[in-house]
């Protein structure tokens, strides 16, 4: 395990968030913005999934296992936040 895998889940969240901020700032609240938001969300969720499979295959000693669990929960939380961030495209 290394720190890139550890922080990868949250890094994708950050990418998603700032992309959405950019989309909202450029295209305001129109249909284009909503579609792009949805697209970005799907991409980032796919990214989280890819990271998940990579981490799933890791093995090692107690510390590796600990970091692996931590990474997985970080991915879960990041995915939740990404999902929530897509709500405005549908609802507001």
């Amino acid at each position: 395990m290394n720190w890139r895998l550890l922080l990868g889940g949250m890094a994708i969240w950050a990418l998603h968030f700032f992309a959405l901020y950019g989309i909202g700032s450029i295209w305001h609240s129109g249909m284009n913005a909503r579609l792009l938001t949805g697209l970005m969300t799907l991409l980032c969720l796919a990214g989280e999934g890819w990271l998940l499979t990579r981490i799933w295959r890791q093995s090692g000693d107690h510390l590796d296992a600990w970091m692996r669990h931590l990474s997985l929960t970080l991915i879960a939380l990041a995915s939740l936040a990404i999902l929530w961030q897509a709500f405005p495209a549908l609802l507001s």
Binding site: W84, F87, P88, L91, S92
Partner: peptide, 17 residues
């Protein structure tokens, strides 16, 4: 919190609209 906040978020966003 996830359940409660999801519900509130949906409500809040629709009302904002």
């Amino acid at each position: 919190p996830v359940v409660v906040l999801t519900a509130l978020l949906i409500y809040g966003l629709s009302l904002t609209r």
